[in-house]
Design a binder for these strands. Structure first.
Lengths: 201, 201
DNA sequence: AGCGAAACGCTACGTCCTGTAGCGTTCAGA
DNA sequence: TCTGAACGCTACAGGACGTAGCGTTTCGCT
C-alpha cells in the first residue's frame, strides 16, 4: 500500500479518531437507555455515566437532549437499507416487510422507535427527519414494486401506493406499540397475503 | 321538586361534589396539556396552574405523573362505546373503524394517545389498562362481526380475527403517529375495501 | 343549625435534572 | 516537540418532582 496521503479515507477510518470514538460511545449509551426506558426517563447525566464521558462533552456536540435523540434515530435508520429483488409482487413485498420486521423485532430499534413516537408529535425536526429518511424511503420502495407489478399484470393500474404502504407497515407498528403481539417470522407473509387480493385486477 | 333523599343518584349526580369537580378540572387540564405538547412536556405544576388546583391536591389523588396520565387515558376510552349494527360485513367493519377514526381525529384523543405510546413500553399498569380497555374491546367487536359474516357466507370460516383487527386499526395509528397523513372521512371505507377481499371465501 | 371529618390551599423543602461557564488536562497532528 | 482541538471536572442558576406540615373550606350527618 502507498502512504496514506489523508487520514480521512472516506467511510471507514482504520484508526477511529478520539472524536468518533466519543461520539460512538455517546450514541451507544443513548440507544441503550432509550430502548430500556424510553425518552421519558432518558437523562443526559445517565448517558454521560454509562458512556464514560463528561456531561459537558455531550452538550458540546448536541445542543439539547432532543437533538441527541434525533441523532440516535438518524444513526439507526441509516442501517435500514432494504433492497428487495424481483420475482413477483408477493415475494417482493414480503421481503421488504420482513426487513422492517426483523430490524424492529431483533434489534433495539423497535424500543427506540417506541421511545421516540411521542416526541414526533411535537418535535418538528424529528418528525421531518423520520418522514424523509424512513417513510418516504419505504413508500418509494413500495412504488417500485407496484410499478413492476402493474407491468406484469399482477396489480390494478390504479393501485394506491400510499394506502398499500400504510396497510403493510401499519399493522407491524400497531402490534409493536399497542396490541402487544410478537413480531414473529410469519407476520410479513400473512400481512401481504391478506392485503394483496384487494389490489389485484 | 321533592327533597333529594340521596345526592348519590347513580351515574349523574345533580350537584357534582367538590371531589368530582376537582377531579374533572384536573383531568381536563391534563388532557389539554397532554394533547398540546405530549407527556414529555407535561408537568404537574402546569396541570395545577391550569386547573386552578393546588399541586398537593393532585398528588393526594395520584401517586405520580404516570398514574395521572393513565387516569386520563382510562377516562377517555370509556367514551369509546362503539356499537355497530348489522347489514353486511363491509358496512359493519367500516362503521366500527369510523368510530375510532372520528375519535382519534376530531378530539384530543389522538394526541393524548401519541403522548402515551412511549410510556406503554415501560409502564406495565398503563400497558395492561390499554390492552384490556381498548385492544380487547376492539378485538371482541371485530369478532362479533366476523362470526356473523361467516354465518352469512361473506367470510371464510378460518378468518383470523386478531390479524384482521390489526390490519384494520394498524394503518389508522400508523397514519396518525408516523406517516403524517390526515384521518379523513374516506379512510375507514378504503381500508376495509382493501383488506376485506383477502378474507372472502 | 352545628359539628366532626374529609378534602383542599399554601409554603417550604430535599432531590434530581437541565444546560452553561470556567479552567485545567489529554490527545492528535505537524 | 509544540500547538490547538477535544475532553474532564467542578460549580452554578433554574425548573420540576414529590413530600411534610398546617391552616382553611367544604361535605355529610345529626
Amino acid at each position: 500500500m502507498a502512504e496514506p496521503a489523508s487520514s480521512e479515507t472516506a467511510l471507514a477510518p482504520l484508526t477511529p479518531s478520539r472524536a468518533s470514538r466519543t461520539e460512538k460511545a455517546i450514541l451507544d449509551a443513548t440507544r441503550e437507555l432509550l430502548s430500556e426506558s424510553g425518552v421519558r426517563h432518558l437523562t443526559v447525566e445517565k448517558v454521560a455515566a454509562r458512556s464514560g464521558v463528561a456531561k459537558t462533552t455531550i452538550y458540546r456536540r448536541w445542543r439539547s437532549k432532543d437533538e441527541l435523540a434525533l441523532a440516535v434515530l438518524i444513526d439507526f435508520v441509516q442501517t435500514i437499507v432494504a433492497v428487495p429483488r424481483g420475482d413477483g409482487v408477493r415475494n417482493e413485498l414480503t421481503a421488504l416487510l420482513r426487513g422492517a420486521v426483523n430490524t424492529l423485532g431483533t434489534t433495539a430499534m423497535g424500543r427506540v422507535m417506541q421511545g421516540l413516537v411521542s416526541e414526533l408529535a411535537t418535535n418538528d425536526d424529528l418528525s421531518r427527519a423520520f418522514h424523509e429518511q424512513v417513510v418516504a424511503l419505504r413508500v418509494s420502495e413500495v412504488r417500485k414494486i407496484v410499478v413492476r407489478g402493474i407491468e406484469r399484470g399482477e396489480l390494478r393500474a390504479d393501485t394506491d401506493v400510499d394506502l398499500l404502504h400504510e396497510l403493510l407497515f401499519g399493522p407491524v407498528y400497531y402490534r409493536l406499540f399497542l396490541s402487544g403481539g410478537a413480531l414473529d417470522r410469519k407476520l410479513p407473509g400473512r400481512i401481504v397475503d391478506a392485503v394483496l387480493p384487494g389490489f389485484r385486477p
